[in-house]
Amino acid sequence: MEELTIFLVIYGTLLGAFGAAAVLVWFERRLLGFWQDRLGPNRVGPFGIGLALADVIKLLAKEDWVPPFSDRLVFIFAPTAVVITMLLGFAVVPYTEHLFIADLNIGLLFFLGMTSLAVYSVLLGGLGSHNKYALLGGLRSAAQMVSYEVFMGLSLMGVVMISGSFSLVDIVKTQAEHGWFVISQFLGFIVFLMAGIAESHRLPFDLPEAEHELVAGFHTEYSGMKFGLFMLGEYLSLILISSMITTIFFGGWLGPSFLPDLVLDFVPPIFWFFAKTGTCICFFILLRAAIPRPRYDQLMSFGWKLLLPLTLVNLLITGAVLLWL
């Protein structure tokens, strides 16, 4: 029975993540449309949701083209890496207290490790394409991810210090007593948010593909389903980062404590998890709609000169508070 549950959760996660990523393609464009006073894609199926399916069919039906000048093996491997690492990242996400694939005692480190591995995908894609735009995109991506990796990890250390565990289930449980970490670890939350955007290279930090300068950056040469995998990876990382933010800072499956107990008892915990994750995704899309892309040097100085000191300050304060109070 136990094994069947795990089996179901794994496949549920797999299908759910893929499905959500596909629907996000449509959802993001629709939402962007509203924010830009347009209607957005609304022609295929009800509200245009069929666009998600149409997009998938299109990508699958396209010619599987490998440019003759590219490094064939690397070129094919690169897009698969990002999807694999992101999907592995979902292994440690606790949907509820009991619903998860694995509650590792190093869950947080595993998540960080997996997101770090995703950089290979972008870097190899850029290198293997043998294209100057792709190479530039790959280089930018490597520098950006290596830099933001640092504060991403450090920003979570406050949380770990308070909850005393790397297990994500434990972290959520800590929040049930302690209150959501978004309040006590506000600085950590801000830094993690920024680093999350940079890690998933979403707008406004999508410099590796910056179409104004680099055509399409590291995936300039990609088309068909290989390009589709990069897209998928990006949306998966969006969902993963959002669920991590939910889990770590917004109390995961816990309902808001100011609501009456009746409501909290009535509404299943998984709803809270998905509702929070969804809101977080919408916020990411809003960022894309509202904030322009910075220059590359601005991005780097923002990271090293602002986020790193902030993280360190956060750690110091958290440490001090834990020691003396």
Partner: peptide, 21 residues
């Protein structure tokens, strides 16, 4: 200023679309 623009853009969710069908 970034936060204000986020807020302002967000409000457009409730504005009438300029485009037509």
């Amino acid at each position: 200023s970034q936060i204000i623009s986020l807020y302002r853009i967000c409000l457009h969710l409730f504005a009438k679309a300029d485009t037509v069908q």
